[in-house]
Design a protein around this nucleic acid. Structure first.
Lengths: 162, 162
DNA sequence: AATGTTATGTTATACAATAACAGTCACGGA
DNA sequence: TCCGTGACTGTTATTGTATAACATAACATT
């Protein structure tokens, strides 16, 4: 079982399940999943890719849910802060988390061709990097791990072209 | 021997050696280390921290070496492309490479307190992440590995405060 | 001289992020 | 009931990051 992966799948499920999981988590933790926050989460879930804040804002604006940048950023901050979404630094963009609620160190596989982003997991602090940090006396609190390359679908396409 | 590390050291050496190494590498590879490119490298070497493109641009402008963003970005692109500098995605900023020329996968330790950045090295593609990618059929071409936390100096300060 | 290549200069604009302040609404306590 | 208080939303304005597009310069090759 791969983590979502690059294949097609039932999307409505995806969104509904994702929102439900987050809603439950909010309930349990006393967090408010307000309309804007819920909608931003849905927008993120509705695409399996990272979206820029302004792209999200465009949708919100079209729906009358808010039209200025802070509206989108605040909702995104909430989602990121509580682990319901992540920021992909390489792209300055955001993506819904595939394991909402669970405590984890996300890692991403980013296709440079089609822009698809898949969340994996990594514990870099436990390998090379952890050793280097320990040696330097550096205390790691958070890590960003992002890999760029070609997803299986685009690899096949490239092979076909050649 | 740690890789530069968070301690003080002889800076003039640092800059001169860094430029010389890059110049040699350019020579060997038929690349042009033009005045702007060389100056940007010097600026980066002169601070052991990540600098924003506009901060660099300010210096260039003061020296009459170019005043518009593309000037700085092009020089930075050149340096990054050939491995003489790196972009720290987390900070949207750039830093001179500590092992110019050598083929490597950089990783960074970023102090959230003082902003110091130290380059380490990591092979995330060989651990968890590599396995996950392989399973998904994803071909990793480049990786971003950045850890944020507290450097030894700031840790001591904190301890002193408490 | 004509051409191609590489680098630089400049304008304008797009995209990303946040500071600062005003308004709303629900809730608990005086 | 009235009054805070806190959490969220709305809006204006601004700062910071990055690039598209086009013009020019310098130089090597033919």
């Amino acid at each position: 079982m791969t983590s979502v992966g690059f294949e097609k799948h039932d999307h409505d499920h995806c969104i509904a399940d994702g929102v439900a999981a987050v809603a439950a988590s909010c309930q349990a933790r006393g967090l408010q999943l307000t309309p804007v926050r819920r909608r931003v989460l849905e927008i993120l879930l509705s695409e399996h890719r990272a979206m820029g804040a302004y792209e999200i804002l465009d949708t919100l604006r079209a729906e009358g849910l808010g039209s200025q940048p802070p509206v989108a950023y605040r909702a995104l901050d909430f989602l990121v802060k509580h682990g319901f979404a992540h920021k992909v630094e390489r792209l300055n963009a955001f993506i819904a988390c595939t394991h909402p609620g669970e405590n984890h160190t996300p890692a991403f596989l980013i296709c440079r061709e089609c822009g698809a982003v898949v969340e994996a997991s990594a514990e870099p602090a436990k390998g090379d990097l952890g050793a280097a940090a320990a040696q330097a006396g550096f205390k790691i609190e958070q890590t960003v791990v992002e890999a760029e390359g070609l997803c299986p679908v685009c690899r096949k396409k490239k092979a076909g072209d050649a």
